[in-house]
Computed example of a mutant assay.
Amino acid sequence: MQTATASPRTGAEGVEVLLFDVFGTVVDWHGSIAREMAHDHPQVDGAAFARAWRAGYQPAMARVRSGELGWTRIDDLHRMILDGILPQFGLAHLDEAARAGLNRVWHRLDPWPDAVDGIRRLKGRALCCTLSNGNLGLLTRMAKRAGLPWDCILSAEVFRAYKPDPATYLGAAGVFDVPPERVMLVAAHHDDLAAARACGLRTAYVERPFEFGRDAPKDVAARPENDLHARDLLDLADQLGCPAAV
């Protein structure tokens, strides 16, 4: 039997669509990559490898935003970064098949423990959709493997613009034919949330203190500019008055 739930926080009144950042917010990219490296390449510092790979993410997208590169999917940007860091970790000998297989680790990222149940509960409150820089094939394979119960998968690929380009946030609102103020971005990254707010979206920050590993915790202190601040997606569901899973 379902129990009564609290009324949603004022900061989310009128919200019809919840858009989710994915890497770091919904899935544990660092832990997933470090675990795979420990299994397949135990001689490598998997934690450092994961962080080095991720460190190339923003600079690679900046090359697309600047026009230095034409539109390039994240799968292909990940591969460019991977090829660049392999020699640093003594893996320059990996052949094409091994490199392609390793690059697909981004399709195999594990969800945070609260993610699947959290999204399932939040779907009772609003449409739940990705808004990630990851490409559609990557996000779809990830969701299928991890059991992420999205209502819809949207990607920067749809709008051919990487966050924080306004085209992504406003484009997602347009897909659902709702004004930006009826859309809330859920993310563990303040820069993403700030860009969404600049477009008129509401924002919810989710704490992921160990996104970069337990040996590199990040500051997850609340900031007043966000409408909501949650420990995880289950806490966010509680704040939005979503029924508990049965």
Results as ranks from 00 to 15, higher is better:
Asp28Cys: 11
Arg223Tyr: 01
Ile33Ser: 08
Ser155Gln: 09
Gln88Asp: 15
Leu86Thr: 04
Ala98Val: 00
His189Glu: 14
Leu91Pro: 00
Ala55Gly: 11
Asp215Asn: 14
Ala92Glu: 13
Arg182Cys: 01
Tyr57Val: 06
Leu201Glu: 03
Val220His: 03
Val178Trp: 01
Thr168Lys: 12
Asn133Ser: 11
Pro166Tyr: 13
Met1Gln: 02
Glu16Arg: 15
Ala115Glu: 00
Arg214Gln: 10
Gly174Asp: 13
Leu170Gln: 14
Leu127Met: 07
Leu91Thr: 04
Ala60Tyr: 11
Pro87Gln: 07
Leu193Gly: 08
Gly174Trp: 04
Met1Pro: 00
Leu77Val: 05
Thr140Ile: 00
Asp177Met: 08
Asp45Thr: 05
Lys123Tyr: 00
His30Gly: 07
Pro87Glu: 13
Asp165Ser: 15
Asp40Leu: 14
Phe23Val: 12
Gly124Glu: 08
Gly200Thr: 10
Gly137Trp: 00
Pro149His: 13
Ala156Trp: 03
Phe23Met: 13
Glu181Ser: 14
Gly118Val: 02
Ala195Met: 09
Cys199Met: 11
Asp238Ala: 13
Val158Asp: 12
Leu234Trp: 02
Thr5Gln: 10
Leu236Gln: 09
Gly70Ile: 11
Ala195Ser: 14
Leu148Asn: 04
Leu77Ile: 04
Ser132Cys: 04
Leu136Glu: 05
His39Phe: 11
Arg108Thr: 07
Ala52Val: 03
Pro59Gln: 11
Thr3Gln: 13
Cys129Trp: 01
Pro179Ile: 03
Ala195Gly: 07
Lys163His: 09
Ala115Trp: 00
Val64Glu: 03
Ala48Gln: 14
Arg73Asn: 12
Thr25Cys: 12
Ala216Met: 10
Pro149Val: 08
Gly56Ile: 09
Phe20Tyr: 13
Arg208Thr: 05
His189Cys: 07
Asp232His: 13
Ala204His: 06
His229Asp: 09
Arg54Thr: 04
Arg231Leu: 15
His78Asn: 15
Arg9Gly: 03
